[in-house]
Nucleic acid binder design. Structure first.
Lengths: 201, 201
DNA sequence: TAGTTTTTAGACAGTGAGTTGATTATTTAT
DNA sequence: ATAAATAATCAACTCACTGTCTAAAAACTA
């Protein structure tokens, strides 16, 4: 092992990484071959194996930073209190932060969450968001005796719903601001989707 | 072309199909090879190519029946009126039907929607459910002037949320009855998730 | 049973994966 | 500026899977 800050290594890894991202956008993760990546990155195929075990390893390493960041944002920044949930402001602030982060990493996030992505990767991210947001924040606030539906389905409902909205936003090219998206998402969840859609008055 | 009801053909196709389903459960769709499938199905690899172009073709053909059924269930059975949405009963009936169908085809549905599935396939199914359920039923009922959030995000929210709950249910092994699941889902959507979770009283 | 069709076994070329060893190019530290 | 270190390259190799094709064997239908 040599200095990891060797400029050749940095250059090579960057080339590989950005080749992967642009290729995932083109044809999806599963359809990629190592050869595709190294061709696009203009490096020898052997070189790839000096840095990564295979394309999955490459993706994992790429995703690692993202998931750490996200986890930090979700847990460090805020711990909700019961009062926060009675008002829309506090969760709103968290959601804004998340959207801002997604916006800053839109290209990669789109490859993870977009239609060309990979379910296992999606689930990895879902799990992180889930545990950070729910287990540590929402869960303690929910009184079992008030539950009209099983907690796990409530959780699946919210987690998937939020993911769906984020996915749609990324597909659209992130036209709305993080603040606007946070407003949309908190409205949908706090007021209920049908109310937010104007079906109930 | 000979009689398509030749018993050898029926046997072979059935063997291939069920081999595929069980292998997807094991290792996921992308990891499968044609050889895996034919080994499991105990047929010659050449035989596979007599019936299918490749594994994607096999999956498409397998999914075709499912999607047609689902589309029929969602469109034929019901057309919602504005009054239906003021009450929870009518949508409830549709949702029960859907869960019943999923239950009857749980093995395959789990491979499509489960963690080992494939995003493209999920999207295909989402699109079908989406167009049948929303474009023809919900959409006309929503008055633009009452919208608090853009319609497309409302749509993404609901579609993804329902999908998430169905996924969770399949992962759990379909413990709840279709009626129970329909109750859960309609409660979450009609009352709003936080109300259904007992956060609001 | 006779005639037809499916399945089989095996071989084929083509492609990507992952590894290796010798060589060249670049970088860092002196 | 130069030497030592090490990263990248190139070519070649094994392996596994794909998709196609043939001729022979097996199973089906009528």
């Amino acid at each position: 092992m040599a200095p990891a800050d060797d400029r050749r290594v940095i250059r090579t890894k960057a080339a590989i990484r950005s080749a992967m991202i642009s290729l995932i956008e083109e044809k999806g993760f599963e359809a990629l071959s190592v050869k595709d990546i190294t061709d696009k990155a203009n490096i020898n195929r052997s070189t790839f194996y000096l840095h990564y075990v295979d394309k999955f390893d490459l993706f994992d390493q790429t995703l690692e930073g993202i998931t750490q960041d996200l986890h930090r944002i979700l847990t460090e920044i805020i711990t909700l209190t019961p009062d926060d949930l009675q008002d829309i402001k506090m969760p709103y602030a968290v959601v804004v932060k998340v959207f801002e982060y997604f916006l800053a990493n839109a290209a990669l996030m789109k490859t993870v969450l977009g239609t060309k992505g990979n379910i296992a990767l999606q689930n990895k991210m879902k799990k992180i968001m889930w545990s950070a947001l729910f287990e540590k924040n929402f869960s303690p606030l929910i009184k079992k005796e008030n539950l009209v539906v099983p907690f796990e389905y409530f959780a699946s409902y919210i987690a998937a719903a939020h993911f769906g909205v984020i996915q749609q936003w990324l597909e659209n090219g992130c036209r709305e601001t993080p603040e606007e998206m946070a407003r949309i998402l908190t409205n949908l969840t706090f007021r209920g989707p049908l109310f937010a859609a104007g079906v109930f008055h």
